[in-house]
Write a protein that binds this DNA or RNA. Structure first.
Length: 278
DNA sequence: TACCAGGTCTGAC
DNA sequence: GTCAGACATGGT
């Protein structure tokens, strides 16, 4: 097992995990067990120092996963100097937020479930999905379940998906499971940002907002600005926005913030939902 | 009880 | 192209 430690003004475990981009993590003694694909690591922030530990063979995977090469200080500074008061406040309060580089397939499946749903429920459904179709693994004496293989998702029954609480999304999920393979993901990886979105939108159950989340959290296209109910609220209340429709609001932000869009969106979302009233 | 949650689809205009 | 209503579920 290896531990990677780094100075971390711009990496806070709690803020990064609890800003709604990832659903597979659990609070455990003094930190978090973070799960991705069939791997897991232990992440903690103590006294401003963040560290993760994982199996030797997974170090490179998690270094990439936590986006360690990106200059978050620069991003955070640009948010603070953006001229938007609410964004400056959010950037100050949420400076430890990072955008994870998650597994593409896992992101597609996870955010399909997110529509018209809330984060605790999404987490619960994904946990039951892994309990039912994943494999049991152990890391540092902690048991966890892997994310199911695409083949196993493809073969599972709609009734199983309904039984774990997906509701009307079960049919969409089953449909997505028929489409996604390693080859399909590899192909998506090669497409441009605009083409990627078009391809995602062609899937039943994936609309504009979920496509933006998949683009951002799975494919790290940071010129994405997912607009959900919270962002819609911020736009109206704090930006004094007058545009109607989530699609237009998203366009406005991407035009304004370019490749900082995804990062700024997470600052704002996390601030509005978790931090403003702390 | 009614409303809400990291929305999307459908059918009517 | 725009818009209301339906859609499962569990928490408040």
């Amino acid at each position: 097992m290896k531990e990677i430690v780094f100075p971390s003004k711009y990496f806070n475990a709690r803020d990064t995990l609890e800003c709604g981009q990832i659903f597979r993590f659990n609070a455990v003694s003094g930190g978090y067990l973070v799960k991705s694909r069939d791997k897991a690591c232990f992440l903690k922030t103590i006294d401003g120092v963040t560290a993760f530990s994982c199996e030797d063979g997974d170090v490179d995977y998690f270094k990439r996963y936590f986006d360690l090469e990106t200059d978050y200080e620069g991003i955070n500074e640009r948010a603070k100097n953006s001229g938007f008061e609410i964004l400056a406040k959010a950037a100050q309060a949420a400076e430890g937020v990072r955008i994870l580089k998650q597994d593409e397939a896992e992101t597609c499946f996870s955010f399909l479930i997110s529509q018209n749903n809330n984060i605790p429920r999404i987490k619960g459904i994904i946990e039951k999905l892994c309990d039912g179709l994943g494999k049991k693994r152990e890391f540092c004496g902690m048991e966890y379940m892997t994310f199911p293989k695409t083949e196993d998702l493809k073969n599972a029954d709609v009734d199983f998906y309904k039984s774990i609480g997906m509701g009307y999304r079960a049919e969409f999920f089953k449909g997505l499971a028929q489409i996604i393979t390693d080859d399909y993901i590899a192909e998506l990886r090669k497409t441009s940002g605009a083409e990627l979105k078009k391809r995602l939108l062609s899937v039943r159950g994936i609309g504009d907002k979920v496509a933006d989340c998949i683009r951002l959290f799975g494919f790290h296209k940071t010129d994405s600005f997912p607009v959900d109910v919270w962002i819609e609220k911020i736009y109206a209340e704090d930006f004094g926005g007058k545009l109607l429709g989530r699609e237009k609001i998203s366009e406005y932000f991407v035009k304004t913030f370019g490749f900082d869009s995804g990062f700024f969106q997470q600052y704002l979302f996390h601030y509005k939902r978790n931090l403003q009233n702390d």
